[in-house]
């Protein structure tokens, strides 16, 4: 480890620093400035006016969208975690090493398929004449209106986050000390009780982080709420795209974006604190 600054060292460390300052930090900082600009006659003007904040925060539509988005993302984090857990648990404890490696490899594949294409594919399953309704028709049920519902949005959210949540949960489960589980069994701790009192507490960090990532992903996603949920109820991400793409109301979109970032920071902080609570002993 050397201390002094050398041309050699800077050649490797500076490019990324400069790039991320110029094209990551500055854009986000500019977003803050932009939220105080004003719009007159469809043209933005540099200004320092809180009008955008006041306008957005006094609109019931905004708070409704906020509540909806928060509830949907929270629901998705919970649902995905609960649905993913038995899967990660089984992969971690019931599969052979070879099978586990294959399971992980298969779970990585979805990351390299287009999310848009998968959402379109779900439309084929869920639409009124879609695969599910045809199959239900065979046993004399339906058709049910499945597309453009909150349930369909959830299917989209699961498509987006399920593989990631499984991988993150799995990562913490495989590192659990197996002797702890054997000890619990030896002391006649029931199977389910072992899961809840030994496995889940031991993997708490990973499980919380997994749920947090699911929350972050779904909180900002606009594809599922629009193309599976039908755009109703409105989420913050829909509000941002509408505000940005129609007209020059970028400063208001900036207000929404900053509110989202603030929310995510608070949630992330609370989640990390919960994850590591009482772990420093």
């Amino acid at each position: 480890m050397q201390r002094h600054v050398s041309l050699y060292g800077l050649t490797f460390s500076l490019p990324l620093l400069i790039w991320q300052l110029l094209f990551f930090v500055f854009p986000l900082a500019f977003l803050v400035a932009l939220s105080f600009w004003t719009v007159k006659n469809f043209a933005m003007r540099p200004d320092f006016d809180t009008v955008n904040w006041v306008t957005m925060f006094s609109r019931p539509v905004f708070w409704q969208a906020y509540g909806t988005t928060f509830a949907l993302a929270g629901g998705a984090a919970l649902l995905t975690s609960v649905l993913a857990f038995p899967c990660s648990y089984a992969i971690a404890f019931k599969l052979s090493d070879t099978a586990r490696r294959w399971a992980v490899f298969l779970m990585v594949i979805p990351f390299f398929t287009s999310y848009l294409v998968r959402v379109y594919s779900w439309q084929i399953f869920l639409s009124d004449n879609g695969i599910f309704n045809v199959m239900l028709g065979w046993i004399g049920l339906g058709p049910f209106g499945m597309l453009n519902t909150v349930g369909a949005t959830m299917v989209g959210y699961l498509t987006l986050s399920f593989p990631l949540v499984v991988l993150l949960q799995l990562f913490s489960l495989v590192f659990i000390d197996r002797t702890l589980i054997e000890a619990a069994h030896n002391m006649r701790c029931g199977r389910l009780r072992t899961v809840f009192e030994v496995v889940i507490p031991s993997a708490r960090v990973g499980l919380t982080i997994a749920a947090l990532f699911c929350f972050i992903l779904t909180f900002g996603d606009f594809v599922s709420p629009v193309y599976l949920g039908g755009g109703d109820p409105t989420t913050l991400s829909i509000l941002i795209t509408d505000t940005t793409k129609s007209g020059q109301q970028w400063p208001r979109a900036a207000v929404i974006a900053l509110t989202m970032i603030a929310t995510l920071l608070v949630v992330a902080f609370l989640a990390v604190r919960f994850a590591y609570k009482g772990r420093s002993k």
Binding site: L28, I240, W250, I261
Partner: peptide, 14 residues
């Protein structure tokens, strides 16, 4: 970890 929609807006504006 920044939602792409926020990054998109920030990038577009900047």
């Amino acid at each position: 970890t920044i939602p792409v929609i926020i990054l998109g807006l920030a990038m577009l504006a900047y």
